[in-house]
Amino acid sequence: MNGACACGVIFLGTGAGMPSKQRNVTSIALNLLDERGFYWLFDCGEGTQQQILHSPVKLGRTEKLFITHLHGDHIYGIPGMLTSRSYLGGDTPLTVYGPPGIKSFIETALSVSDAHLTYQLHIVEIADEGVICEDETFRVETARLEHRVECFGYRIIEKDQPGKLQLDKLAELKVPAGPIYGKLKQGQDVVLEDGRTLHGADFVGSPIPGRIVTILGDTKYCKGSLQLAQHADVLVHEATFAMSKQELAYAFDHATSVDAARTAQEMGAKTLIMTHISSRYQGDDTDLLLQEAMAIHADSHIAKDFWSFDIPKKS
């Protein structure tokens, strides 16, 4: 867990509402597969592209941008990020997902500023809860949260991987290495030269479970956050205020550190990382938020700008 880690969750901005000297406004990068070489961004507050310059994130290798809601501290960095991606040689398609209105915001900003992108930009406005994108490796689900404007949280699910080929069993049977191993790994049946038939399922271990990362937008304690957080390996949850400011938090549809910890604990999330911290909590003041959360959910952390959390593959 450090600022140099390139695989896992990377926090580019962890403040709430407006930037402070210690925290920029919200943006998070996710990279679960180094070999894939792509980054996904979640929210893009003002100054995100500047924050990226001080991180391992490669803007030209950004593949998707997920927007939780349309408040300025989550979207004002989008036009600059999109145009800079062109200047940095980004030529692969980029897809933006977000609530209704995100398309109008982006297209207006690019049109008024006469911006010309060197890549295909796709904008998907989320019409309903459920699966919004899926490929051979990941599935992303979304649910509505409770905030002053329409707001979504995202659940990133890595699909289970095939189990490991049991080489010791094959060695005992004197099965020659080569293409046969590849076929067995894929679960196929193989007939050897000596007439023996090997069934792939007999030589492959149990599937390796994929990782689950839940990244929530601004929200108070609600059904949607509980749904998305269930059994997550990492839950990223806002904690704008300490418990002593609960009335203020609820008045503006935000969460306290206790709300975040309750969500993690009740839904069996492994690691809780709190972000979107009010500027009233500076320096050691954030220890209060952490102590409140850890009293409920021991594996809790407070994110800070450029801090990262590695999420190793399961075995």
Rank of each mutant, 00 (worst) to 15 (best):
G3N: 11
C7Q: 14
V9Y: 03
V9E: 12
I10T: 11
T14W: 10
G15N: 10
P19V: 02
N24G: 11
L30C: 09
L32Y: 10
E35G: 04
R36W: 13
F38M: 05
F38E: 15
F38T: 13
G47P: 01
T48V: 04
T48H: 10
Q49N: 08
Q51S: 11
Q51L: 06
H54I: 01
P56N: 03
P56C: 00
V57T: 01
R61Y: 11
E63P: 00
K64T: 03
K64V: 01
L65P: 07
I67P: 01
H74Q: 12
Y76V: 02
G77M: 06
T83L: 12
L94D: 13
G98A: 03
P99Q: 08
P100T: 12
K103V: 04
S104K: 09
S104A: 13
E107V: 04
S113F: 14
D114G: 01
L117K: 03
T118W: 15
Q120P: 06
L121M: 11
I123V: 04
I126V: 15
E136P: 04
R144D: 10
R144G: 00
H147M: 00
C151G: 00
F152A: 07
I157V: 11
I157M: 14
E158K: 01
D160K: 04
P162W: 12
Q166E: 14
L167N: 12
A171K: 14
A177S: 13
A177M: 04
P179R: 07
K185N: 10
K185D: 10
E193G: 00
L198G: 06
V204F: 10
V204G: 06
I208G: 05
P209L: 04
I212S: 12
I212K: 13
T214A: 13
T214W: 10
I215V: 08
I215Y: 13
G217E: 11
G217M: 06
G217H: 03
Y221F: 13
C222F: 06
S225G: 05
L226R: 09
L228P: 09
A229T: 01
A229D: 05
H231P: 00
H231Y: 15
H231Q: 12
A232W: 14
D233Q: 04
V234K: 03
E238P: 00
A249E: 08
H254P: 04
A255T: 05
S257D: 09
V258F: 08
D259G: 01
R262D: 15
Q265F: 14
Q265K: 11
Q265R: 12
G268E: 10
I273K: 05
T275A: 09
H276N: 08
R280L: 06
R280F: 08
Q282H: 07
D284Q: 09
T286K: 10
L288Q: 13
Q291F: 05
E292D: 09
A295W: 10
H297N: 02
H297D: 14
H297Y: 08
D299L: 00
W307Y: 14
S308T: 03
S308L: 03
D310F: 11
I311L: 14
